[in-house]
Design a protein around this nucleic acid. Structure first.
Lengths: 225, 225
DNA sequence: TATTTGTACTGTGTATACAAAATAATAATA
DNA sequence: TATTATTATTTTGTATACACAGTACAAATA
């Protein structure tokens, strides 16, 4: 009867569908900061009742993506440059921790996965659609995250990364920077293969630093206009 | 009419009351890991309907304090030693970041607040009720957190600290360690006053280290029994 | 006896109903 | 005309209702 084991696994409560949808919309900027999230309107638009909407909002609230005004409802939290630099400050510190832990703990098979991910990224840069490259970049860094074997660290880093979702493409848009990115990835692979903590850390700090510059430049440009 | 401006401010939706209640109960261990959170039962016990209960559970879910089993409901997440060491690993890294940022950014008036908090803590250690000391310890470290002027960092650190809520008293229970704690606090005050990043960082790392030892000892003792 | 089928029951997932607060709009008054 | 009262309207906060999945247990069947 094996043939009928179709994966009907993908069960998701409506609240989680709504949660992910709203989350993505906020991070993409489709829902603008300050915009009110009105339950009935959203419910109608998404073809569900208020209940799943409200439960999704509870999660967004805890994540800080929406703020609640008592008896007035939820509105999209506005992200200031300060918010983002705060995130970047924490993130770069934790990225440093992650790469150091990874250098200590990475398993041999993960090194193989890392090499593959590195190659994938390089190839993806050829694609005119930058999102392809962005995805492969995420995948590469995910391998490093997982090599830390610290679930909590991974969770926080993923969250911080998502906070910057709408800027994630910035550092890939300029093809002139691609060779450097590839080189840094390769250096990371090398350093991790050699379990060289210091080298890996140094490369990573540089790697992150340029991404941050790109993001901050972008923010400031946005604010000017 | 000033006289009647009694702070009726403290409006809290039921969902948040429920959230805080459950959260505290889980962190204290009153709700045991693996225990099911059944909505009607909780609703009856707390004298509310299922709705606020469910919304509170959504937040607990995102925080990782409960895990959802599809169509079966929520149960209290079990915290393993691995979970806690993961938390500690991240926390000590971020405490290091925090103290360094604080050393760079602390304002003069915050140094005064810090000195006061330091004294409060010392006095509180005389109290036979260790929770008093714990509170003052939290207050002291809060001043340092705030001195970082990084809201996101503060939020994450507060969260990590709460994860260890049930172990927070361990390092205060042995009076023999009190002099060292006080000394370290004083050294932190000194280093921060002098804006000496390296010194502050060194003291903090030591300070955290011993707390971690106490917590880990406690966990292992719990697991043995 | 072992296995299946049916049935009742429990509890979640979602929708709807109702009450109270906030806001906007309109009428009334000085 | 400006300002206050009054009334609708909108929207949240909370409670309740209903449908369906999951489970346990008993009856039926081989």
């Amino acid at each position: 009867m094996k043939d009928f084991e179709v994966t009907i696994n993908e069960y998701l409560p409506l609240r989680d569908v709504v949660f992910q949808t709203l989350r993505r919309a906020i991070l993409k900027g489709e829902l603008e900061p300050g915009e009110r999230l009105m339950e009935v309107a959203l419910a109608n638009k998404m073809g569900v009742s208020r209940t799943p909407i409200r439960e999704a909002i509870r999660k967004l609230e805890l994540e800080g993506l929406v703020i609640m005004i008592p008896r007035k409802g939820a509105e999209v939290a506005s992200i200031t440059e300060k918010d983002l630099t705060d995130v970047l400050e924490v993130r770069s510190s934790l990225e440093k921790l992650a790469i150091e832990l990874a250098a200590e703990r990475i398993a041999d098979e993960d090194i193989e996965r890392l090499k593959a991910a590195c190659k994938d990224f390089e190839e993806a840069l050829g694609d005119p659609d930058v999102t392809v490259g962005a995805e492969k970049d995420v995948a590469f860094h995910d391998v490093i995250y997982e090599a830390t074997h610290n679930a909590r660290l991974i969770q926080i880093l993923n969250n911080l990364r998502e906070q910057m979702y709408r800027y994630r493409l910035e550092y890939l848009k300029d093809p002139a920077s691609h060779p450097q990115l590839v080189r840094e990835h390769q250096e990371l692979v090398e350093a991790l293969s050699a379990r060289n903590k210091e080298a890996a850390s140094a490369v990573m700090q540089n790697h992150i630093y340029y991404q941050e510059l790109a993001v901050i430049r972008k923010i400031q440009k946005q604010q000017d206009k």
